[in-house]
């Protein structure tokens, strides 16, 4: 793990990158990193996240700045700007059931070739996908997702990069930390190694590449 400045962290991410971003309606999203991407105008991004938050909040800032070419998300209902960009053809939106989305990311990070789920069978979600029937029950074959970068928001990081999350800000964060080539963490608190007890570490340090300095 390496500690780097905010500007340096954002400069790692090139135009056109695929980026997994933690957060649920903006809760548990690394806002500082998002702000820096907007400031730099890093564009043509593929964003993989639960949702696009609200206008001007979290991932909604990337949407408003026109930086998102493709979004793979479960929900855009609270962000009319995402819907407008989708209708205008500026942003491709792939809507994925939330449980399937997190499992596809988990599969990507856990070395699995995909997951089988009954969610979406017989609905528009099934379109273009293989199905498998096992023991009389039909499942969709859902493919794994990985990304170039994961932008993780943590409550606390120790000097080695062990992470702890708080309350409902955990959501996608520990799962995306497994599924990207480069993991960048913004933590609210940076604490001495040992402050987070082994049993309380939610993301182990070796998964973290960069911690954004305070």
């Amino acid at each position: 793990m390496k500690t780097i400045g905010l500007g340096e962290a954002a400069s790692l991410i090139p135009d056109g990158a695929s980026v997994m971003i933690g957060g649920f309606m903006g809760v548990g999203t690394p806002e500082r990193v998002i702000d820096e991407l907007v400031r730099r105008g890093t564009g043509n991004l593929t964003v993989i996240a639960n949702d696009t938050a609200m206008p001007g909040v979290g991932i909604g800032k990337l949407i408003r700045a026109g930086l998102v070419r493709r979004a793979i998300v479960s929900h855009i209902g609270l962000n009319p700007e995402t819907q407008q960009q989708m209708i205008a053809g500026k942003t491709d939106v792939e809507l994925v059931p939330q449980g399937t989305l997190i499992e596809r990311i988990r599969a990507g990070g856990f070395g699995l070739g995909g997951v089988l789920t009954a969610t979406g069978v017989g609905t528009v979600v099934e379109k273009g996908k293989a199905t498998i029937t096992l023991d009389g029950k039909t499942y969709l074959v859902e493919r794994p997702l990985r990304a170039d970068f994961a932008l993780v928001s943590a409550f606390a990081a120790d000097y080695l990069g062990n992470l702890q999350y708080a309350l409902t800000a955990r959501n996608f964060n520990p799962v995306i930390a497994m599924a990207a080539d480069v993991v960048i963490v913004d933590a609210e608190h940076i604490v001495p190694t040992g402050v987070i007890a082994p049993d309380h570490v939610m993301t182990p340090a070796p998964l973290v590449d960069y911690l954004v300095a305070h």
């Binding site: 949702d51 998300v73 479960s74 929900h75 855009i76 209902g77 609270l78 819907q83 989708m86 939106v93 809507l95 059931p97 939330q98 449980g99 399937t100 789920t117 009954a118 969610t119 979406g120 069978v121 609905t123 979600v125």
Partner: peptide, 15 residues
């Protein structure tokens, strides 16, 4: 008219 995304609804009804 309304394309908010399914969020967790499909998983809830299926599971």
């Amino acid at each position: 008219k309304m394309v908010p995304g399914m969020g967790g609804a499909m998983d809830l009804v299926s599971g």
